[in-house]
Design a protein around this nucleic acid. Structure first.
Lengths: 112, 112
DNA sequence: TATGAATGCATCATAAACAAGCCATTTTGA
DNA sequence: TCAAAATGGCTTGTTTATGATGCATTCATA
């Protein structure tokens, strides 16, 4: 009984997922690692790695990011090494932002 | 008995997750959307959105990416709009790559 | 400064991810 | 070519994420 995907994903989301999966697989083959080898290093099953490389939306984001990290596939950062810096800035910025948002009565940014 | 994260994540992975969560929350507050409103639009519970904004590694990557997409938070693409193009290139490239990797006997890219 | 609203955080039931194992098929390199 | 190895794709049982609910706390704004 294959689950009938109770959740819907936008085209953009699907594209991002599949792209990330492709990048991971490319990086793995470039590194000459078998699926079994990489799965073992990542501490996951070979089956799960297969889903990751496919861009399965149901995979845990932590697992996907960890595999990408193991292979050196860039995640959020535009230039490598800037992730930590961006995170720091983000944390500082957050301290300044309002902690709660009350329902907007006027116009809401709705153009998406 | 909540088992405390049987899985281990690297520092880099955690940073990327928290950063993405922060970006999502910043985008939400900037758009003046409450957690309940955004959760409803994303088709998820408010509780899950909270975990997403926290950078919980256990969240489905599809859910996280979908929320980010709803808010316009860039995912893989350096410049917006290039995701589809990158995906296309990736798919073409994949057709040329070897489909199986046999265990390397020589030296393996192991420097990570 | 009130006060209605938003958020944080528990708990519990349920749906879904995940691991393990197995076999068929494809691929690589000798 | 051919045999060993890698991959694809199931299935089953266990672990875990998720939704629903409720409540305490904090916040925004009138």
């Amino acid at each position: 009984m294959s689950k009938p995907a109770t959740r819907a994903y936008s085209r953009h989301t699907t594209a991002a997922l599949v792209l990330l999966g492709n990048l991971i697989r490319e990086a793995r083959t470039t590194s000459r690692l078998t699926a079994g080898e990489l799965a073992e290093r990542a501490g996951i099953s070979r089956d799960l790695l297969r889903r990751v490389e496919r861009g399965d939306p149901g995979c845990s984001i932590g697992v996907v990011f960890e595999v990408a990290t193991l292979l050196g596939v860039p995640l959020m950062e535009a230039d490598p090494g800037h992730l930590a810096l961006r995170l720091q800035h983000s944390m500082e910025k957050r301290a300044l932002l309002p902690r709660a948002v009350h329902a907007a009565r006027g116009k809401v940014k709705d153009d998406f």
